[in-house]
Amino acid sequence: GPIMLETYRVIADYSKTSKYELNLKAGDLVDIVEKSSNGWWFCQCETQRGWAPASYLEPLDQPEESEEEEPNYAGELYKTTKAYKAVEEDEISLEVGEIVEVIHKLLDGWWVVRKGEETGHYPSMFLWSTGERKEV
C-alpha cells in the first residue's frame, strides 16, 4: 500500500553545505523519508530529495507534540568518537575517547552531555554508546 510520509514545514532558510543536502526556504513543506538521530533527516520536496537539518523543520500536523525523549538526569554513558571544539556558548569541547554522560537526546542532533562539572551540547554523530548507565 501507499506509504504515508510525515510533512514538516521549514522554519528558516538554509543553504546546503554538501552535495546530498537540500536547500530550504522558510515556509516550504517537505516530506520526511528517514529521521536520523544525528540530526540530519532525509526529505523530499517536490522532485528533490536530500538531507536537511531537523532543527530547521517543524511538524505540520502536531506542532505542539514533542517527539523528543525526556531528559535522563542519571546519564547514559557514551564515548566521543571525534573531538569537537565548542562554537556556541551552550556547547562543550571534548577530545576523542572521552567518556561522557548523555542526559538529553535532542532531535536536532545536539545532545546535552555532562563531563564532570561541565554540561553542554555536543554533536550526537561524534558519540558512541558504551551501553552502560552511570553508577550513582
Binding site: 538554509y14 538531507w51 532543527s55 536536532d108
Partner: peptide
C-alpha cells in the same frame, strides 16, 4: 537508494528559532 547522511554535524538552530526548552 538513500545516500549516506552528511559527515559534518548539522547546524545549530538559528537563535531566534530555537525551541524553548525549560
Amino acid at each position: 537508494s538513500i545516500k549516506q547522511p552528511p559527515q559534518n554535524p548539522p547546524p545549530r538552530p538559528p537563535p531566534e528559532m530555537r525551541r524553548k526548552r525549560t
